[in-house]
Design a protein around this nucleic acid. Sequence first.
RNA 1: GGCAUCGUGGCCGAGUGGCUAGGCAAGGCUCUGCAAAAGCUUGUACAGCGGUUCGAAUCCGCUCGAUGCCUCCA
Length: 493
Amino acid sequence: MPLYQSQKLRIQNSLSGKKEDFTPLNEGYVGMYVCGPTVYSNVHLGNCRTFMSFDMIFRYLKHLGYKVRYVRNITDAGHLVDDAEDGEDKIAKKARLEKLEPMEVVQRYTVDFHNILSQFNFLPPSIEPTATGHIIEQIEIIKDILDKGLAYEVNGSVYFDVAKFNETHEYGKLSGRKLEDMIANTRELAAQDEKNSPQDFALWKRAEPQHIMRWPSPWGDGFPGWHLECTAMSTKYLGETFDIHGGGMDLKFPHHECEIAQAEASYGQSPVRFWMHANMLTMNGKKMAKSTGNNILPGEIFTGDNDILSKAFSPSVVRFFMMQAHYTSILDLSNDALLASEKGYRKLMESIDVLGTLNTGNTTDFDIASWRQKCYDAMNDDFNTPILIANLFDAVKHINLIKEGKESISEIDKANLMTSMRTFSFEVLGLENESASKNESGKLSGVVELLIQLRKEARENKDFATSDKIRDELSALGIQLKDGKEGTTFSVS
RNA sequence: GGCAUCGUGGCCGAGUGGCUAGGCAAGGCUCUGCAAAAGCUUGUACAGCGGUUCGAAUCCGCUCGAUGCCUCCA
């Protein structure tokens, strides 16, 4: 029996604003779409948080036994810089500035994106489609919406008629906005002469002669509007209605609202059953922005090459830090917060190492089954990773007590605890045990064991100068010795 | 200006109408040759001002502040 039959998952649905019981459209299968990055620069750390949240969600759904088709797109065309710059494509602009082919820009930053995500130990999505690879599908949707009278063509561009759509549908239901309010509060914007109304959005934009990224269409050469690619790719691979659509909070309006409008206009039904939105990442209490310098790239955290943090932090530490907050909360990154997470992360990893070495007894002073269910309860409650981690630390405490000989664990419970600790830490949270991999060769541990033996002999001879020298020199190399009841162990940082 | 979300102890963060979150940091104790590690233990919270209630940090109102969105930024 798959786990999902006994573990009842509840998910916060942005569309209803409530936590709802999750059951997929087709028993045993989950379709999930997440809006991916626009590959015109290095991946933003906040962007990584969003994708990490959905990586964790993907991992947990799989763990529950669902067969998950996870689609995360690459936006390699279609984003405009802004209206003031005559609607120039973001990628084309970058290409012009860097004197590169647009696809060279796309390739460079796609590689960067995958490289960073791989360091963060992300699972690859099932399908990673590109916008430029789905131009035909996008054109078909535009034709369909035009046929239904919910879009209009002006000078080779096609716009979605929001007012007309709103007569029979509810535009703004996801973001809690009303069309009347939007009309009343519209800012003055340039270059919108073509649109019937400022609320209308582009499905297809005419390409000016100097525009490099262009495709032929029934309306002349041009390129698709940004919102359309997600509608085309999500419905192509997941169907006209699918289970989960995710993305950052900032995409709720207008992007996701427009996706709903496009799909309802074209297919006549709401495309998504559960809308999920991950919250923003701030740094030192302020939003992250290149313009103010309050910004850091993931790679700069890993190498320590930045002016903001006191040292380098590994991808697993950053991952642990992010998992300590709920995905729907604003999370604030700071040097102190990362230092605290680093210690907590090491404590957890060392405890998992220690668990394997514990001596077993006849009884267990620790209810493993109910503890494990608490871990599931946390995850079932809208993927509450901070509560899960609190439960993992509860187990850490017991592991240490058993190590001290103050509690006992049976052989079978030890195996069960080990399985659960590894499952939740590595499989669900996606952490990696870095100290274990550093120590893999066995040569290091042989050398350190020898030094531990020499130090033990020195201590027995009351030669504390020698014993402290061994301890301090190893410490300077990042190898910490720990004296316990059962002898001395060590950890590598 | 409008809409939305949020404001928890030294720091990061869960949670919630009455019951310990957790991690890090700080103090005390145990252990130790001394430390570290580990265990035990202690303390300052729920932005401010009103209101509802037997009881609110949790519900309502206002104020202040933060973050996001308001035509293409995750």
